Simulated scan of single mutants.
Amino acid sequence: MTEAPGQAETLMGHLLELRSRLLKGVVAVLLVFAGLMPFANRIYALLAEPLLSKLPDGGQLVAIEVASPFFTPVKLAFFCAVMLAMPVLIYQAWAFVAPGLYQQEKRMARPLLVAALLLFYIGCAFAYFLVLPAVFGFLTAITPEGVAMMTDISRYLDFVLVIFLAFGLSFELPVAVVVLVLLGVTTPAQLREVRGYVIVGVFILAAVITPPDVVSQLMLAIPMCLLYELGILAGVLLRRPTPAAG
């Protein structure tokens, strides 16, 4: 069975628009990346500050691989470019799917997208300013005497990016809770009933995705528990009342 000409034209139009949106997103990332490249080493120095500030005088990072001093700052600059261009990427995705949504769905989706973006940034900032100094302070304090803590710059970057992604995504919990409530999958009352199981699951998740130290686990689990409660409260405020029977 062949497609009608109108359907084929509509599909081709969607594909062309998708390509246009993707190209705009890629261009936005590349432009920001090009602007950050001259400052790549300086950005890496800022990223390394939470560890360097905790090392004894003269402590420093090392580059084990020959090309690490070049590729590691470039990798960080690209990650920062994606993060800074995220509003553009989200807008392009929104502009592509918005025409197929009802007005009520658009009104709900806009604030949720903005909240999700802000919460991700807040999670990364929380990790940089609070979690990393606490984690590195703990790790340097328990380093055995006579052992010099000299971390490879590439492995340090991988470690920190994992922390950023873990906290950034974990801070999306209120948005996930609100979406489940608005879709009718669950209710605030049901979320309160399973609070104990959620807390246990949060601490298990924190133990899995954070480094093997108590400090980072607590600093992820406790905010997630508070954000879960915030999501329940937001769900109560935003949930549409159920029409009375009869």
Results as ranks from 00 to 15, higher is better:
Pro188Tyr: 08
Gly196Asn: 02
Ala176Ile: 12
Thr187Ile: 05
Val175Ser: 07
Val175Gln: 05
Arg195Ala: 01
Phe164Asn: 02
Val185Ser: 03
Val162Ser: 13
Val198His: 02
Val181His: 03
Ala189Ile: 08
Gly196Phe: 08
Ala166Arg: 06
Ile199Asn: 04
Arg192Glu: 14
Pro174Gln: 13
Leu183Asp: 07
Ser170Thr: 02
Leu173His: 06
Leu183Cys: 08
Pro174Phe: 11
Val179Pro: 09
Ala166Gly: 04
Val198Lys: 02
Gly168Arg: 08
Thr186Pro: 05
Pro188Trp: 08
Glu193Pro: 00
Val177Lys: 13
Leu173Arg: 04
Phe164Gly: 06
Val194Asn: 00
Val175Asp: 07
Leu183His: 05
Ala166Cys: 12
Gly184Asn: 07
Ile199Leu: 13
Phe167Gln: 03
Ile199Tyr: 10
Pro174Cys: 12
Leu191Phe: 01
Glu172Phe: 08
Gly184Ile: 11
Pro174Gly: 14
Ala189Gln: 14
Ser170Cys: 04
Ala176Val: 15
Thr186Glu: 07
Phe167Met: 03
Pro188Leu: 07
Val177Asp: 10
Val185His: 03
Leu173Tyr: 03
Gly196Asp: 00
Leu183Phe: 07
Thr187Ser: 14
Thr186Phe: 02
Val162Ile: 10
Val200Asp: 05
Val178Phe: 04
Arg192Cys: 04
Ile163Pro: 01
Ile199Ala: 11
Gly184Gln: 10
Leu180Lys: 11
Leu180Gln: 14
Leu182Gln: 15
Arg192Leu: 11
Glu172Tyr: 09
Leu165Thr: 13
Gly168Trp: 07
Val181Gly: 11
Ala166Asn: 10
Thr186Cys: 09
Pro188Arg: 08
Ala166Leu: 11
Pro188Met: 06
Leu169Ser: 15
Leu191Ala: 01
Tyr197Arg: 12
Thr186Ile: 10
Val194Cys: 00
Val177Pro: 08
Gln190Pro: 00
Leu183Gly: 12
Ala189Asp: 13
Gly168Tyr: 09
Leu182Met: 13
Leu180Thr: 01
Arg195Gly: 00
Phe164Val: 04
Ser170Val: 04
Leu173Ser: 02
Ala166Pro: 03
Val181Tyr: 05
Phe167Asp: 04
Gly184His: 06
Val181Phe: 05
Leu169Thr: 15
Val178Trp: 05
